[in-house]
């Protein structure tokens, strides 16, 4: 990268890629992987999610990570982001809960109310 124009080109492209519609992904699962999350088991949760995604052969699901949202008391925290729908943030997730979220929310489109912290558009 040399110039501001180059930077802005990268930005445009990155913004496009972050939109789900433009890619092949229907849904994005974002796991909060800061030390707080990891201390509460976010790594295991991530593993369980990847495991479910591959076992169920879900090719349109993207699993990524982010830092902390500041909700220490609710870690591990995950977001489920779907184009055109409200982002659902789940808290106090365990591997079992994560598997349930995959089965109900990701596969069947039903929000697992018991684990929701917030819903945002």
């Amino acid at each position: 990268m040399k110039t501001l124009d180059d930077l802005r080109k990268i930005r445009k492209k990155a913004q496009q890629e972050m939109k789900l519609r433009e890619s092949n992904n229907r849904i994005k699962i974002v796991i909060s992987m800061g030390t707080s999350g990891i201390a509460m088991g976010a790594r295991e949760v991530m593993k369980a999610i990847l495991d479910e995604v591959s076992n169920r052969n879900l090719t349109d699901v993207l699993v990524t990570q982010t830092g902390e949202k500041g909700l220490s008391s609710m870690e591990p925290v995950i977001d489920v982001i779907e184009e055109g729908k409200q982002t659902v943030t789940y808290g106090n997730i365990t591997t079992e809960k994560a598997r349930k979220i995959i089965a109900e929310h990701i596969v069947n489109g039903k929000v697992v109310n018991d684990f929701v912290i917030t819903v945002q558009s």
Binding site: L7, R11, A14, Q15, E17, Q65, T66, K69, V77
Partner: peptide, 18 residues
């Protein structure tokens, strides 16, 4: 200061640039 914390993937420079 916390604007992006919990929203972007910290290991991807593109997301910060976005």
């Amino acid at each position: 200061a916390l604007e992006n914390c919990g929203y972007i993937d910290p290991e991807k420079i593109e997301e910060y640039i976005a």
